[in-house]
Amino acid sequence: MSSTENDSSPESPSNDIAQRSKSRNQVLEWILIEGNRLLITVGGSAMIFVLFLLLSHYGVIAFTNENSVTRMASGMIAGTFSLVTLVVSVNQLILSQEFSPAGDFRDRLDGVLDFRQDVEQMAGVPATPAAPSQILLLLATAIQHRANSLATALGDHDDEEYRARAVQFANSVAESTEQIDKSLDQTGETAFDTLSVAVNYDDVWQLYATKHLRNDASSLSEETAQNFDDLIDLLQLFRIAQEHFKTVYLQRELTRFSQLTIYCGIPAVLAAVLITVLYGDIGGGTIAVMYLPYVTSFLATLVFVPLVLLAAYILRTATLTRRSAAIGPILPQKDSNEGPFEVSYNENQ
């Protein structure tokens, strides 16, 4: 295999986590990831309530026709039952992953213990921390230390062009890990905060670039090669930690969503039933006409709460999963012409 360097720099395109976060649309980012799901649900439900009132005020919809309102309420009851049933099915799927015989559970436990042992060996600590945020910081510190050691070891490399490129990359890795500590200080140390920081860290790109630079060198000293190998191992451990955090977090998040859907689903069904009862009189609503838009809009909003809750949770889980979908040094979000490395088949092999 042969490779040539194009005009791009081997620095990660998302080197600075904080700078990349600021460049995004902050409102959209808050809705998709950062915002409290319950707060977003309340805000979305309030917007639906206001929308109903505005449509009624401008004559787009009317709450005086009992036939249309009761048909709408019947559809709401059926839809709410379907949504609750779907969520219960999702919850059963999650629970099925927790039920396993002793042998399967032992394999899972051995996998976690092996990972913790690898972290202890690479980081030189007596025991891997229990808190996810501390594991992340430990791995980031180890990656930073190894990247700095790599930059120092590359100082006496014979190829000046390769040395400049590799040292630049090692320094960019060291700088990017500093942002993890800063990001956790700004956001917090909860399970979601840890996962959010881990997902934003461009470990997949760094693993790809490290492997390329390691294998593209014509010759490496023993110390430099060892630093390359250690950096690759640490980046792989970081990726494993990220996937483990994501799995645990999504299990907890979806379980919490299932609970909240049941809590909101029962009032939603009752609200739809109340709409039907409210318009049970053959002459129309059983309360004064001036109050019908407010009462009916409020009850209809309650029916929509489980749907808004579903949207709030799915937006976060889907966004996190999409941003961390790559396994290993495979970058599906990159264009085929993106550098910094151009690789072609070597016919002499």
Rank of each mutant, 00 (worst) to 15 (best):
V27Y: 13
H244E: 13
L54Y: 15
D114M: 09
D203W: 13
L184G: 00
N171E: 14
V42L: 14
R24I: 06
V308Q: 03
V199K: 02
N171D: 14
L302C: 06
A166K: 00
L235C: 02
P340D: 01
L254T: 11
G111D: 12
T80P: 03
P126L: 03
G79N: 03
D185F: 11
A170C: 05
D216M: 06
P126I: 04
K334V: 10
P126N: 09
Q236A: 12
V303C: 15
F245R: 07
A140E: 00
A288N: 11
S21N: 10
L302F: 13
L39G: 07
N200E: 13
P129I: 00
R108D: 13
V119A: 02
L237Q: 06
L292W: 01
N67M: 06
F99M: 11
E253C: 07
D335K: 15
T80C: 09
T152P: 03
L213W: 01
N6W: 05
L310I: 11
V167L: 12
Y263C: 04
S3N: 08
A151S: 12
G339P: 02
G124Q: 01
F105P: 04
Y249K: 04
S68N: 10
N346Y: 08
S3H: 09
A102V: 13
P329K: 05
V84W: 00
G265V: 02
T85K: 08
P126E: 04
H145M: 14
F169T: 03
I232F: 08
T255S: 15
S183R: 15
F341L: 11
I262K: 07
P329H: 06
V289Y: 13
D118R: 11
T70K: 14
R37D: 04
F105G: 07
V305F: 02
A225Y: 11
D185Y: 05
V343C: 08
T177L: 01
T177K: 13
S183Q: 10
L307T: 08
D229I: 11
S14I: 10
L28A: 10
S14F: 11
L83C: 04
S23T: 11
L231H: 00
G280C: 04
E5Y: 14
V60R: 05
Q121D: 13
V112C: 08
L86W: 12
E98W: 05
N91G: 14
S336T: 14
D281F: 13
V42C: 05
L184S: 00
M76V: 06
